[in-house]
Design a protein around this nucleic acid. Structure first.
Lengths: 150, 150
DNA sequence: TTATGTGCAAATCCTTTGCAAGGCG
DNA sequence: CGCCTTGCAAAGGATTTGCACATAA
């Protein structure tokens, strides 16, 4: 299964990183750049510890708490998004565009997907008895192909 | 805002509890009955500690870990459902039927809702490139009426 | 009676925080 | 240079676990 982001997309994301920081009013540091790179480079929705381990390959002396602080900050500023599922730790996603999630209930795999059919649901939500709606996200749960086979 | 489940619905849920345990292959105990009652009685999606505090009014000597174990077990067996949102602890919901969630991004309020329009989306998901889909859940994020006013 | 469930206490895991030193703008 | 960031170490909070006793079936 494909786990790495397309090389060109990654390059674009990395190129826009200083701009993202500027708009967010935060400084560009070596640590932040590498944390962003790891989140932006994978389709796997890694947790904080995985990111820590991967970033250490480039910055051996980085500390786990810096990774946590950085991820929390990025999440707050909308530079990445934060995802969480019952019984699981927080996970992070470099894809901040409109998308939905498929979650395998057996192995925990999370996969982004887009769907025009699903996006079309949005206008139908006028009659839902809530306040002001800012986002619509659909979660599909089930078994991924690999787990379905087993 | 309404926070308690309709009396009649609660009575039905309590009446079906022994049956639910039987099907799940677990024993009916005083503690489990009261933990279930608290989750089944509220629309508020309480966390483990709230449930602990409420159940203690009926069983003062119950321990927090029993509440955790019970909630975890109920979640596994599908007797209640477990919900979680980024940066928040686990929360529990006595409504196991098909429904969706509205989440207030400011105050954390979670509200169940049903929607035929949303349910209609389900058949359109054939072409989503995932494995076998067992549930479709839609999450609306935004501001609840109270927060929108402020 | 016998497998299950409970309470207690301690452990574990994830995450956050205070503070002094370092580095970006 | 001044404020923002980092690393370290320690704290914090939620949740889980081992074990002996209690209890539902």
């Amino acid at each position: 299964m494909k786990t790495a982001v397309d090389k060109k997309l990654l390059a674009e994301r990395m190129a826009s990183f200083p701009e993202l920081c500027l708009r967010a009013g935060i400084r560009v540091t070596h640590q932040r750049t590498e944390v962003y790179r790891e989140v932006a480079a994978t389709l796997e929705h890694p947790d904080a510890d995985s990111i820590y381990r991967r970033v250490r390959r480039r910055i051996p002396q980085i500390s786990l708490d810096t990774v946590y602080r950085t991820l929390g900050l990025f999440g707050e500023k909308g530079i990445i998004s934060r995802v969480s599922y019952p019984g699981d730790r927080a996970r992070f996603d470099g894809n901040t565009g409109q998308h939905h999630h498929f979650i395998c209930t057996k192995c925990g795999l999370i996969r982004d997907f887009r769907s025009d059919a699903l996006d079309a649901v949005r206008p139908r939500l006028k009659n839902v008895p809530c306040g002001r709606i800012t986002s619509v996200q659909i979660e599909l749960r089930g078994l991924c192909r690999r787990c379905a086979r087993a």
